[in-house]
């Protein structure tokens, strides 16, 4: 997953898309996911990481991540053509 390179996200989860000027408040888990993607992790690794941290099953985590990624895509926070 490729998060837009200039995307700025604060410790509080405040996030600015510098291209569109839109800003968002993201909850702590959302912010964690973005940071993991920014660090270069694939979706599979992010699922594994979060399953371990929060003690949830992989299927639920995958579904929730898929939903969240779609929200990010909708707001052009990740590159739409990225498959992974």
């Amino acid at each position: 997953m490729k998060i837009n390179k200039n995307l700025a996200i604060s410790e509080n989860g405040f996030c600015l898309n510098p291209v569109t000027g839109e800003s968002f408040s993201i909850n702590p888990i959302g912010a964690e996911i973005i940071q993991l993607f920014k660090a270069g992790m694939t979706s599979e690794k992010v699922v594994k990481e979060l399953c371990t941290s929060y003690n949830i099953d992989e299927a639920t985590m995958e579904r929730d991540l898929y939903d969240f990624v779609n929200v990010l895509k909708h707001h052009q926070l990740i590159q739409a053509d990225e498959k992974n």
Partner: peptide, 21 residues
Amino acid sequence: PMRKQFITDKGKAWAGISIDE
């Protein structure tokens, strides 16, 4: 470049943000 964040009823920008477009 700037994106208008708040527009008055006269269509004037009352707040805006510089962007990287």
